[in-house]
Design a protein around this nucleic acid. Structure first.
Length: 677
DNA sequence: ACACCTCGAGTTCT
DNA sequence: CTCGAGGTGT
């Protein structure tokens, strides 16, 4: 026991040291802070449990290197709500109408128009005029303590003048001014380091620095736009609140105006759009708030957003660039997907060089041709999308693009599009591109979940001839790997451990890893639960497979076909020799039965991240109580649970269909009782 | 036969 | 996120 601990401690010390260097030296951390924190915490715990093994040179013993590696959680005394969005004039009017209807009779009076800054929402707490705490928004209820870092921001006063309220909680946005962003990048470049992509992410990174002296050099700034808890001040309107904040020395944005009609608010929005790029900081919209606090009180809030305010989101930025070429990528199941190779263009906060075009018909429908000038934007703020060509700029001689007839891999086998299919497929069984896709898929998080086996390494192992099918993962030649550049004893040990651990994954995950056409997470689970063992699935007839609820003739045939193949049966044999788990663990079912089936017959969709669950964990919690949790909202949905950073499309759909929207607290209650409050 | 859910695949960049 | 396609119910 102690021996194992000693080894692990040595390993952890190396890990933490390594990542310390990555983090501080090059500012290019390889792993998320959370993982780093986990390593460090595990090390602390081990050292506490085995004091005799504690080493004086352990990173946990170093003074000055900030012992509190985690930002402590802070519960907001008043929740920090998000805002409902409007994307056009009609939606803005709809918001105003809703508000008007809820107020008996009278007009809602003045509106305060503010810019919506692209930064990070924070809450500052002043007690007796002194800044005692700064916290991130987090999930709105609980954030993280970032006081030490916020104290380094110039525009944030440490002390308020005499006569300040006993308690003042100020809400605002911390952002990185464009000048500071540019200066920072100039410095990065001078030092031969890589540029930061956009001000928002850089601001976020700067605030999460473990060493506040680094934050101090970044040039962050803040705008204040509302208050939380206040003791010792009486305010009647939002505009008066802002004036009060300003008089107290807190930074309030000068573009803010108070208007007396929705029409005037719309004009403010139009001006925002016009001067968006002339401002010395980035904005992503405008916020319209009802000024009178008594009316705000009367309107109240839904579970996630106040009814007295609305955020107008500026349309996503569009850019034009040259479509250099259209290439084709081959997926793990042989699917050939065309994608646009673009002259790199900065749009929506990052540089875009590629964008999927989905399939042949989509390319034709969009009528894009290599050589075209095309319009590009980010769909849903993340995924680059080619909207279409600028026909006026098209050279006369540009020819229509044709789907390549052969696979891009060296074997150049034909790409086939079958009748009724939208996609082309490479059907060559030994296509190296397919193999790479399959291996990556096998190691992916929803399959065997093998850490430290990513795209780069898969490519390398295939090139070295170490892997010719998925089962070879379990007979890797580690001595050969150790010879490779970039592989030390530690990383090889980590990889081996991850591969070893994957042998214990569930049958459902193994089924996902087998890469059978038409089978994914859900359908693999259906089969694993129904048959209980891989051997029984292999032995099943098409009819038996199709008897499973949710499995139809096409999927059944696909599964049957897979196991008919001699090559596939050989792979299964090798996996058996490697002693992978072929049985669906019992116990998960019995454990599930033990929980009260509060969600029987209910369909709960979740969008955004929840505090108490991982993304997979939420679904598991719902299913464990007899409910279903699909990935999209439909008329069958019982309720939509909204967490941090929710997807707009699900929310919109739920609102259109009149489906109840729950926050995490209400969700917990639903899990417990099965009742929507 | 059709409509409507669902599911799965591929995808971008930090 | 978006598209395509399988499964199920009417």
């Amino acid at each position: 026991m102690t021996e194992g601990a000693e080894e692990r401690i040595t390993e952890l010390i190396e890990l933490v040291r390594y990542h310390d260097r990555r983090y501080h030296g090059e500012d290019a951390p390889e792993i998320p802070d959370v993982e780093y924190d986990q390593f460090k915490r595990e090390l602390l715990e081990l050292e506490a449990a085995h004091p005799e093994l504690a080493r004086p040179d352990s990173p946990t013993q170093t003074v000055g290197a900030d012992p509190s590696t985690l930002f402590e959680p802070v519960e907001h005394r008043m929740p920090m709500m998000s805002l409902d969005n409007a994307f056009d004039r009609d939606e803005l009017r709809a918001w105003a109408d809703r508000a008007q209807r809820r107020l008996d009779a009278e007009d809602f009076g003045d509106l305060v128009c503010e810019l919506k800054f692209d930064g990070l929402a924070v809450s500052l707490r002043y007690e007796g005029g002194k800044l005692v705490q700064a916290a991130t928004r987090g999930n709105g209820r609980v954030g993280e303590d970032i006081t030490a870092n916020v104290l380094t921001i110039e525009s944030v006063p440490h002390r308020l003048p005499a006569g300040a309220p006993e308690v003042l909680e100020v809400r605002g946005e911390i952002y990185l001014p464009l000048a500071a962003f540019d200066a920072l990048n100039a410095q990065q470049e001078a030092e031969g380091k890589s540029r930061y992509a956009n001000p928002r992410n850089t601001a976020a990174g700067s605030l999460r620095q473990k060493d506040p002296s680094i934050t101090a050099t970044r040039g962050l700034a803040m705008w204040c736009y509302s208050v939380g808890e206040v003791q010792g001040a009486q305010l009647a309107t939002h505009s008066a609140t802002l004036e009060f904040l300003e008089s107290t020395g807190l930074p309030v944005n000068p573009e803010t105006v108070t208007v007396d009609s929705l029409e005037a608010a719309w004009q403010f929005i139009e001006q925002c759009e016009a001067k968006r790029h002339d401002l010395p900081y980035e904005i992503d919209g405008a916020v319209i708030k009802i000024d009178r606090l008594d009316l705000q009180q009367e309107l109240g809030s839904t579970s996630r957003a106040p009814r007295w305010a609305v955020a107008y989101k500026l349309p996503p930025e569009e850019q034009t660039t040259t479509l250099l070429d259209i290439h084709v990528s081959i997926g793990g199941k042989g699917k050939a997907t065309p994608f646009a190779v673009l002259d790199p263009v900065f749009v929506g906060g990052s540089t875009v060089a590629m964008a999927t075009l989905h399939n042949e018909d989509q390319v034709r429908a969009k009528d894009v041709r290599p050589g075209d000038t095309v319009v590009v934007r980010k769909a849903g703020d993340v995924i680059p999308e080619v909207l279409g060509p600028v026909l006026a700029d098209r050279p006369d001689d540009l020819v229509e693009w044709e789907f390549p007839s052969v696979c891009p891999c060296p074997h150049r086998e034909p790409l086939i599009r079958e009748e009724g299919d939208a996609a082309h497929y490479c059907r060559f069984p030994r296509c190296p591109e397919q193999l790479r896709g399959w291996i990556e898929h096998f190691a992916a998080r929803n399959a065997l979940d093998i850490e430290h086996l990513g795209e780069q390494r898969v490519r390398l192992f295939i090139d070295l001839g170490l892997i010719t099918d998925v089962a070879d993962i379990y007979t890797l030649d580690y001595d050969r790997i150790r010879e490779q550049e970039g592989f030390g004893d530690l990383s090889v040990a980590n990889l081996a451990a991850a591969i070893e651990a994957s042998k214990e994954q569930t049958l459902a995950r193994l089924m996902v890893g087998l890469n059978i056409r038409h089978l994914g997470d859900t359908t693999s689970e259906l089969l694993a639960d129904a048959f209980g063992h891989l051997d029984r699935i292999m032995a099943a007839t098409v009819e038996e497979l199709a008897e499973v609820d949710g499995i139809g003739p096409i999927m059944a045939e696909s599964v049957y076909e897979f196991f008919q193949s001699e090559a596939n049966r050989e792979i299964v044999g090798k996996l058996r020799t490697a002693e992978l788990n072929f049985a669906q663990e019992i116990g998960s079912d019995t454990a599930a039965e033990a929980l009260p089936q509060t969600l029987e017959g209910k369909t709960i969709v979740v969008t955004g991240g929840l505090e108490g669950y991982s993304r997979d964990g939420v679904g598991a919690a719902i299913k464990a109580r007899g409910g279903k949790s699909p990935g999209s909202v439909s008329s069958k949905t019982t309720a939509l649970v909204v967490g941090e950073n929710p997807g707009a499309s699900k929310l919109d759909k739920a609102e259109k269909l009149g489906i109840p929207v729950l926050d995490e607290g209400q969700f917990e209650q639903l899990l417990e009782t099965g009742v929507i409050s």
